[in-house]
Design a protein around this nucleic acid. Structure first.
Length: 558
RNA sequence: CGGGGCGUAGCGCAGUUUGGUAGCGCGCACGGUUCGGGACCGUGAAGUCGGAGGUUCAAAUCCUCUCGCCCCGACCA
């Protein structure tokens, strides 16, 4: 491609109202433009990258026997009503009516439609297994689109669905997908981890997420370098570092106006890990006290799994229900339901005395209070791995893919049944598997950039090589450039030739910004000696090479 | 949905406090000089100041309403 013939609107200045590096660089380098909040236009360069990624997705999906199909984006409501998600999902679903008044929605995902197809077409165990996938647009009315292409309202997703006769078949397809995903992300040049994840509303028992480390991410994962344990902090379990034992007998201590853990900790000159944080929440069943150690944070979702929907109590409610203001509540002598984090089972603690301006020191679990024990704290860096007790690391990550074992959650309500060898009717056992190609692109930029711009991994770069004939008014430069362009193209390389009548500086700046992995620089002086420069975008290292050797050297570097 | 910020030329911004009829840099067009890391000189085009209503002799500026975008949080199948 000739630069002059391609629409590459680079920007010298960073548009304001952008935060994520990938967002800034995609805009500046002319890969995307924003249409509205959470809606992006992919320009020629951006679309080339997307297609590179999609080609890898297709190759690896085909390699595990998945078959590409294409499903509508507009769905009738009935199918979503049958699985209950029409009602379970709120404002995030785009809904509309057709001209006859029929309820419709725009697909946020395709479990329902894929299962509908299976329910109509799959009758016998002989028809199974099947794996179907598509690379298709999804629409979600996100509460908060953000970070450029990372969280949008309309996005392309590679989604595949496996259909099996048994759990065993599902596990096999699940495993195949996990392996394919490893290959895909490795090929795309990403650093990533596969972690245990919370299936959430997707349903099913087991799910994993593929996470690319980046400060622009929205999730956090806990990692153990020793035993390899890795999980989304949504469900990661950890053991807080143990306290030195204390020889305390139970006694009240006067703590005038000291309410927060921090205040009492400073006042008593005791680390916050010796305190019990008592948090009153209002659940559907009524008030519940949640206890976590003073240096830990309560994990709302873990607590929700135990007591269901709940909200923090207001200050006024604390006083009404417990008879003492929030700063001085504690577990001892309570009659309402108490859920305590398991890390409090051992040790001696300080907590509120349920009496204004007093705390109790020397509290022991089971002796002074008897709660229900659950893991309800948030795993944090420095906590110990629940499996091998070495220190955990916590990393911010971008979710680039996920895999779910759905089981019969969708096949049952949609009556996707088959007859087994014995003529027995059984629901198809399903899995679903997603990858966001735009997130791969964004994560690749987040992980590979410098002050000058993007540094694309070779596999997903919009072009293999950028040719930079510096002076388009020099006939020799143009001749050599045209020849190299033709020869390299003939070798199967994709070349972007900056044939614009621009100054050298402009071409260099744009080339670095756009981030094509190899630059071949044709300067007048070098050409007089029969030389050109081959420069790696990543290292900025350049070698001078004879014109005749360029094709060979370039193909070997690629 | 809660909190905060911002809408002035394609982009980045000043002007708003204290009303007086819109400006700078980049980009763009044309001419000339330049030509290995975002050149220089000159000329020029380009803005219903997000929108609607109001106050006023006069509104980018003050008031009311409204739309949009960004950030933090909640949410995220």
């Amino acid at each position: 491609m000739r630069f002059s013939a391609m629409f590459i609107p680079t920007l010298r200045e960073t548009p304001s109202e952008t935060e994520a590096i990938s967002h800034k660089l995609m805009l500046r380098a002319g890969f995307v433009r924003q249409l509205a909040s959470g809606l992006y236009i992919f320009l020629p360069l951006g679309w080339r990258v997307m297609n590179k990624i999609n080609a890898i997705l297709r190759e690896e999906m085909d390699a595990i026997g998945a078959q590409e199909i294409s499903m509508p984006v507009l769905h009738p409501a009935e199918i979503w009503q049958q699985t209950g998600r029409w009602d379970a999902i709120g404002d995030e679903m785009f809904r509309l009516k057709d001209r006859t008044g029929r309820d419709m929605c725009l697909g946020m995902t395709h479990e329902e439609i894929m299962t509908w197809l299976a329910s109509r077409e799959i009758r016998s165990y002989r028809d199974l297994p099947q794996v179907w996938y598509q690379i298709q647009t999804k629409l979600r009315d996100e509460a908060r689109p953000k970070s450029g292409v990372l969280r949008t309202r309309e996005f392309i997703m590679k989604d595949s669905y496996s259909f099996d006769v048994s759990e065993e078949g599902l596990r096999k397809n699940y495993q195949l997908h996990a392996e394919a995903y490893h290959t895909i992300f490795t090929r795309c040049g990403l650093k990533f981890s596969m972690v245990e994840s919370d299936p959430g509303m997707m349903g099913g028992a087991i799910s994993h997420e593929f996470m690319a480390p980046s400060p622009a991410g929205e999730d956090e994962i806990a990692l153990c370098d020793k035993c390899g344990y890795s999980a989304n902090v949504e469900l990661a379990v950890s053991i807080p570092v143990k306290n030195e034992p204390k020889e305390w007998s139970l006694e009240e201590v006067h703590t005038p106006d000291k309410r927060t853990v921090q205040e009492v900790s400073n006042f008593l000159k005791l680390p916050s890990s010796y305190f019990i944080k008592s948090i009153l929440v209002i659940a559907d069943e009524g008030p519940v006290i949640a206890l976590v150690r003073g240096d830990q944070e309560l994990h709302e979702k873990k607590l929700a799994k135990v007591i269901g929907n709940h909200r923090p109590a207001q200050k006024r409610e604390v006083k009404e229900i417990l008879g003492v203001e929030a700063g001085f509540i504690g577990p001892v002598g309570q009659t309402i339901r108490i859920i305590a984090d398991t890390s409090l089972k051992k040790g001696e603690y300080v907590s509120g005395a349920n009496k204004p301006h007093y705390h109790l020191r020397g509290i022991k679990a089971e002796k002074d209070f008897s709660p229900e024990w659950h893991d309800i704290h948030t795993a944090k860096a420095g906590d110990l791995c629940a499996k091998c007790e070495s220190a955990l690391r916590v990393e911010r990550v971008i979710e680039i893919g996920n895999i779910f074992q759905l089981g019969i959650k969708y096949s049952n309500p949609l009556r996707a049944f088959f007859l087994d060898e014995n003529g027995q009717e059984k629901p198809i056992v399903m899995g679903s598997y997603g990858i966001g190609p735009a997130r791969i692109a964004a994560a690749a930029i987040e992980q590979n950039n410098d002050k000058d711009g993007i540094i694309w991994p070779k596999s997903i770069a919009p072009f293999d090589v950028e040719l930079l004939p510096l002076n388009m008014n020099d006939p020799k430069t143009v001749d050599v450039a045209e020849k190299l362009y033709a020869d390299l193209t003939a070798m199967g390389l994709e070349i972007l030739m900056d044939d614009r009548d621009e100054r050298a500086g402009v071409k260099f700046k744009d080339a670095d910004l756009i981030g094509i992995p190899l630059q071949i620089i044709l300067g007048e002086k070098n050409l007089k000696e029969g030389l050109v420069e081959i420069k790696e975008r990543k290292t900025k290292e350049a070698v001078k090479v004879k014109v005749e050797e360029v094709v060979e050297r370039t193909t070997s570097l690629r």
